[in-house]
Amino acid sequence: MKRLLLLACLLTTIAVSAQQQYTVDGNTYTLQKEIEGPLTLLWNTIDNEYRYFLQKGNTITELKNTKVNGSYQEEYKEVLQQQTQNASLAVDGVNLTLPSLREFVISYNKKVDPSFTFEEKSIQLQTRLGAYVGVSNNVYYINPNNTILPSFGVDLELTDEVKLKRHALVFRFKQLLKNSDYDFSNSEISLNYRFKFIKSSAIDVFANVKVVAYSHASRDIIYTDSNGQEERITGSGGELQTPGAFGLGADIALGNGFLTLSYNDIVAIGLESNDEFPVDFTVGYKFNL
């Protein structure tokens, strides 16, 4: 219970970016205001796709880049030219990404309004919350018969969408459940770092490093030691670990969130394995807060 309360406290400390509803071509969207000025840049992730809009006066226009017969049409560049005719800005090098559009809109606003100022954001925090279930053979503890146990838990992922899009911190709670063959249960809270070496609107593929963890285990195990003698381990207790454990995973866009798959703790530098092949898989679902 204390661990769940700790996770709840972490959730309440997350800052949520201000958003507002806008009507564009008869459709209502909840958008974030990235830059406000003579030309205002709006955006958000809608149906798992990054969407960008320009507002000039009371008119809001979406920036599009549709694909026809394998070729991108780059309609957004025509919109940029139309909206900035009074400033003669080149649009050839502008990409349909938030950093590129931000730079273009700032340049235009400064050119048409000498009093315009823009304070560059140092971070733009995005959070994702998810739940998962899985199985594990618990190779970093004594497991006499290599029994596979069920698990479940929650993830809270933090990313910076300005400068560190491929990087994330993840607070993870994981509960391993005992069964009739293996009287072992474990509650773990861990801090993880993820590097997303593939990142797109459809899928993120990442490497995960478990940096530090607190585990509390309860067990009643009978096993045979190296001398052939039966030994029994009973009791419960907790410890702080620095496992340096590596895993792989993917977040796949699905509905209003992401289907998440992961292969956890494949190898751990700071923990001793029982020499069994690691089996630690989870599947879950997460959504943007």
Rank of each mutant, 00 (worst) to 15 (best):
T45S: 09
E78L: 04
Y50N: 13
V16R: 12
V205A: 11
G249F: 05
G153I: 00
V105C: 09
I269R: 13
K111A: 04
P243G: 06
P38H: 15
G237K: 10
V91G: 00
Q175I: 07
G255E: 12
E161S: 11
L158K: 00
Y76A: 00
R166D: 13
S215W: 00
D47K: 05
P38V: 08
L259D: 06
F246L: 13
F171M: 12
R3M: 12
F118K: 03
L5P: 00
Q83S: 08
S187W: 01
R128K: 14
L164A: 13
E161M: 13
I203F: 06
I198K: 01
F104V: 01
E74Q: 09
N264P: 07
F184L: 08
N145W: 10
L6V: 13
Y263W: 12
K110P: 00
Q82Y: 03
N264I: 01
L7T: 08
D25S: 11
T234S: 09
G257Y: 08
Y76M: 00
Y132T: 08
Y223G: 04
N27P: 01
G57Q: 02
K178Q: 11
N27C: 04
I233Q: 13
V154M: 01
N86S: 10
E103R: 04
A253G: 08
P99D: 00
N264D: 13
S236Q: 15
T97A: 07
V211F: 10
L125D: 05
F195Q: 12
L158H: 02
L7V: 14
N145L: 14
P38T: 14
R51G: 04
K110W: 06
S136T: 15
Y72G: 01
E62D: 04
E272Y: 06
G237M: 08
F184V: 03
Q124L: 11
Q126G: 09
S107R: 13
L158P: 00
A245N: 06
L248D: 10
V91D: 01
I123G: 09
E34C: 07
N109I: 08
Y141E: 12
Q55N: 07
I233K: 10
V209Y: 06
E239W: 05
G244L: 15
R3D: 05
P114C: 06
I123V: 15
I35S: 06
A131P: 03
T117Q: 10
N137V: 09
A253M: 07
K33W: 03
G93N: 14
K196C: 05
N208M: 11
P144E: 09
G134L: 00
T242K: 13
A168E: 02
N138T: 15
L240M: 15
L259H: 04
T40C: 05
T45E: 14
E188V: 04
G284Y: 11
A131E: 04
L240C: 08
T260P: 02
T61W: 03
V68W: 03
V135P: 03
L5T: 05
V170M: 02
F246R: 01
L164P: 05
N65I: 01
A8P: 02
I266G: 02
Q20F: 06
L248P: 11
E230T: 12
K210E: 10
L11W: 10
L177Y: 12
L248V: 15
